[in-house]
Amino acid sequence: MTQLSELRLINDSNILYLKKINRNYKRNEIVKNILDDETCFFKMNKNDAYIILQDIGILSEQIDKIYQKLISSDEFYRLFKSKKIDLNDKDILIQYPIYDTDDLFKNKKVDKYNDESIQNTMELIPYKESFIKKVLNKLKEIFKI
């Protein structure tokens, strides 16, 4: 279950509970409408996000951690890739840069492959048999093992 799904669940439960005890649940309904937008936390400032998380019932000591997860770059890229975030949407307040992977290495120079260049760059250390191995092999020879 995603973080946002859990928040929705808790908020829905709050609404149902408040209905059962005949108390006003208008705030929770507005929070429900906000949470319906999967990108909502990218469209509000930190203070407003904290108000909503407090309304849902998140403990004070956990709010910052949960908030950071909700607006993380991973979450942003996930929403962007699934076309739920439009970079031109003026409502998006929190954005991360989007890189075109073709551009990332376009200036990198790649040397043409040749044996000489490979040899120059690689350090080839010839294998040397250890002294103990030499002794053991000699013993094997002597005793014809």
Binding site: L18, I21, R23, R27, I30, I34, C40, I51, D55
Partner: peptide
């Protein structure tokens, strides 16, 4: 918009003394 919802939210007072059943 989200902004409008938040403005609406701020106008409503939080319920006080909600029993914890």
């Amino acid at each position: 918009s989200i902004k409008e919802y938040i403005q609406e939210l701020k106008k409503i007072h939080q319920e006080q003394d909600v029993p914890n059943d």
